[in-house]
Design a binder for these strands. Sequence first.
DNA 1: GCGACAG
DNA 2: ATCTTGTCGC
Length: 237
Amino acid sequence: MKIEDIHPLKIEIDSFEIIQANLRKKVKLETSAKDQDIKFCAGVDVAYWEETGVEWGVCSIIVIDYETRTIVEKAVSKAEIHVPYRPGYLAYRELPLVIEAAKKLTITPDLFIFDGNGILHPRRMGIATHASFFLNKPTIGIAKSYFKIDGVNFKMPKNVAGSYKDIIVKNEIYGRALRTHTDVKPIFISCGNLIDLPMTTEITLKLINNESRLPIPVRLADLETKRLRKMFDSTRS
DNA sequence: GCGACAG
DNA sequence: ATCTTGTCGC
């Protein structure tokens, strides 16, 4: 699939929903990526700002060595944003920017971790899940706040690093409220695609350091994206 | 009209 | 997401 087929500027929102409904059938979580298969792991994030009435967005992808946790590559994309944010349609807004940055990578990551949900989503098609069909790689979704689905609320995990509570929708585990540090609010993890929930949980926890509740690649992408915004936004002090 | 609302 | 100061704590 090509980004041209889904670019928000070229399709309508209902076409987007149809595309997602078709992609959803192809999601594979059983044939999961394994920990030992991962050499390079990428974190993805997007930041926004406004300049003379125009909204801009910058996406950064940070690739690290899974074992040594050192940065091996960075990629960036920047563009005017004309699609408004709508809960449940984040991919419609930021996927084009993500794909553009991903195309610039010379290293092929074995896993992409997103700032946003995977199948923990009303249509089981959060940005991490949707993105995997362009990246053709396993993806994980990490949300900093809970996106409520079908009236299902999450339960607080015990206040111990590593503890979690499953988020169950229609008899299926969609994701987990995961505590990555004691005394720190949980994050909300879910499978994107091509990976199962136990491995998603294991990898997420393995990529946590004491600087953030978010896994290292996502944290680094978040820092980079804000640094770039400061650099590009001429109206910023 | 009111509430909900990933980023 | 972004707008924003100080402040409490390790």
